[in-house]
Every structure is written in C-alpha cells, then in structure tokens.
C-alpha cells in the first residue's frame, strides 16, 4: 500500500469520525444531508458484498466493516435518535436522491467489468459514490452558517477523493496490470465535484472569515 492510498483511507476515516463526533457529543446533525448519508450507506452495502466472497487482508476487512457500520449508524441516528433527529434540516435537504440511483443502475448494467451480480453492484456503487455528495453540497449552499465540523467533514471527504486519484497515478506507474477505468473515471468525476467547495473553503481560511458558499 502506498502513502497516498493510506493517507486517503485515513482522511476518509477521519471524516467519518468528525461526523460521529458531531452526532455523539454535540447531539446535532445540523447541516448534514441525510440524503447523502443514505446514498453512502447504499454505496458501501453494494460495494462490500465481496466481504462474503473475497478475502484481501485484515486491514481491508476491518475498514470495510467500519465504513459499513458507521454509514448505517449515521443514517439511523439522523432518522431515529430522539435528540439528534430534531437538529436535521429537513426542509432544506430536499434533493431527490432516489432519482440519482436509477441512472447509476442503468449505467452499471451497461458498463461493468463483467456482467455478473457482484460486478454490476460494484460498478453501481462507484457511479453512485461519484454523485452521492451532491445533496450535501446543495445543502451547504442553502445553509447560511456552515459550522466548523460540517466544513471539516466535507473537506476531509474531498481530500480522501483527491488522495485516491494520486494513489491511482502512483499505482499505474508502479504496478503491472493495474488498470481500472470504471474506478478512475467515476473517481475523477467525484473529485471534480469538490473543486468549487475547495475553492471557497480555502478562500475563507486564507481570509480568516466564516465559510459561506455563494447562493
């Protein structure tokens, strides 16, 4: 495992920890999109079906279980926890996320590495992950005051995606037979979706003002 991949996984892990910290200690999910969290729960459930078929490493298995467990529990907290759910910005979080799933499924049926159930689900999870952040970005834009933890959560997620791109470049040049077009294209699309957010985040950081996205 190269340094970009490890750093990518760690920023992904930190992003989840930041979100869990907000939910568990502050008992708030203000500014967090339930739509995005539901999409992530579906992304990890469909991608990690190979937990039952392929063993890669202990690291791999543990990380998969962490991402599965955390994404499902975040959705549960936002929907059912009696304190946390009251802070959910339901009226602002209106992105019709189910509409994203059908095109992703159709694309997965058309473009996959092999036409089997696991491979179609794997491709579906990658296409869906590429667009899963959209409801969150729309919610951020509508929220006037973005709190630090929410900003950091999205920043860490974006960093995770950018580090994965560096990891693919590194692997392409150092490993034989390392070609994953589906992962690369959907991953690059996903990373580009964060570009705008990155821009405004660093502007606010540089000028030492509160993060606000233009309407």
């Amino acid at each position: 495992m190269n340094i970009f991949r490890l750093a990518g996984d760690m920023t992904h892990l930190f992003s989840v920890l930041v979100l869990l910290l907000k939910i568990h200690t502050i008992k708030s999910c203000a500014g967090i999109s339930l739509k995005t969290q539901e999409l992530y729960a579906i992304v990890f459930t469909t991608r990690y079906l190979d937990l039952f078929t392929t063993y890669i490493s202990l690291y791999n298995t543990i990380m998969k279980l962490i991402f599965l467990g955390s994404s499902i529990s975040i959705v549960w907290y936002m929907r059912h926890h009696k304190v946390v759910r009251r802070s959910y910005d339901k009226d602002q979080d209106t992105f019709r996320h189910y509409l994203l799933m059908l095109p992703c499924l159709l694309l997965a049926l058309l473009i996959n590495e092999k036409f089997t159930f696991l491979e179609v689900m794997w491709a579906f999870s990658l296409y869906l992950e590429a667009v899963a952040i959209l409801p969150q970005l729309v919610l951020l834009q509508r929220t006037r005051n973005i709190d630090n933890l929410t900003g950091q959560y999205v920043l860490l997620l974006g960093a995770y995606r950018a580090l994965y791109v560096l990891n693919w470049i590194y692997r392409y040049f150092t490993e034989e037979n390392y070609v994953h077009w589906i992962t690369w294209v959907s991953g690059i699309v996903q990373t580009l979706l964060y570009a705008d957010f990155f821009y405004y985040y660093f502007q606010s950081w540089k000028n030492n003002v509160k993060l606000q996205l233009p309407a």
């Binding site: 991949r5 996984d9 992904h12 190979d50 392929t54 890669i56 490493s57 791999n60 990380m63 998969k64 991402f67 794997w122 994965y164 990891n167 037979n177 390392y178 070609v179 994953h180 992962t183």
Partner: peptide, 10 residues
C-alpha cells in the same frame, strides 16, 4: 486479455 486485478481498494 489482462490478468484479473484484485479489487483491493476501499
């Protein structure tokens, strides 16, 4: 065709 690469990423 190419040798199958394990899907070892998360």
């Amino acid at each position: 065709s190419k040798a199958k690469v394990n899907k070892d990423e998360l």
